[in-house]
């Protein structure tokens, strides 16, 4: 996957870590160290995703975002914040951010979210489809039925939403936090391995007895549903 990312972050070490990681993931990365430069770059050139720190010298992150949106730039923005409370998340999202990540974060979490944002901006994939498919796994969003080949799989409502989310993002890494936010609408870390157990339960239902497993664990990051 490739694309152009703008990172607006004043902490050099953190910026370097993000830039390096994204570069290794085949992204082209520009970096601005303060809000004013960031705003200039964001309105001057085309980016796939903007990563914006909440607290910046010269111009606050929220102001940058409002100015970017006011300039008619619709590029997805992911806000980073050290404040890490639900207050800031809600404020960020209502001010026009597309996603929110609190520091400290793992790079895998950031990468997964950037990829989701980048794809959201590209022409619609399966988002509008009534039946989602991954290899011989089929999920019918209208009749709410799941089949693997000829086998009908009984799933509970929450498992259905979990599988639906994984299928909508097939081929992409989804993190535990992303699942918690999208499937359960919780924005805190319930700790332990709450999500892992849900996944392994779902995995038993769709992959047990199959020659090719579809639901993969990505070590240190999360999960990926794909046909490889």
């Amino acid at each position: 996957m490739s694309g152009r990312i703008l990172v607006i972050e004043d902490d050099d070490r953190l910026a370097q870590y993000v830039v390096q990681g994204l570069t290794e993931a085949n992204f082209t990365v520009d970096r601005a160290a303060n809000g004013r430069d960031g705003l200039f770059l964001a309105t001057d050139s085309e980016f796939d995703v903007i990563i914006l720190d909440r607290m910046l010298p010269k111009m606050d992150g929220m102001q940058v975002m409002k100015a970017v949106r006011a300039a008619g730039v619709a590029t997805p923005i992911l806000v980073l914040s050290a404040l890490g409370a639900t207050d800031d998340r809600v404020e960020g999202l209502t001010a026009g951010a597309d996603d929110y990540l609190s520091k400290p974060f793992s790079f895998a979490e950031l990468l997964a979210r950037v990829q989701v944002l980048q794809r959201r901006n590209s022409p619609a994939g399966q988002v509008q489809q009534a039946v989602l498919r991954c290899a011989d796994l089929e999920l019918d969003r209208l009749s709410r039925q799941v089949r693997r080949g000829e086998r009908k799989i009984a799933v509970q409502p929450r498992e259905f939403r979990l599988l639906e989310y994984l299928m909508l993002h097939q081929g992409e890494v989804v993190t535990r936090t992303m699942l918690l936010e999208a499937v359960w609408d919780y924005h805190f870390d319930p700790g332990t391995n709450v999500i892992d157990v849900h996944i392994s339960r779902l995995r038993r239902k769709i992959d047990d007895g199959e020659a090719r497993p579809l639901l993969h664990t990505v070590r240190g990051a999360g999960y990926r549903l794909s046909d490889d």
Partner: peptide, 11 residues
């Protein structure tokens, strides 16, 4: 912030 950088370095 230091913890974030620590995690980053470990990664």
């Amino acid at each position: 912030s230091p913890v974030a950088r620590l995690s980053a370095s470990i990664d």
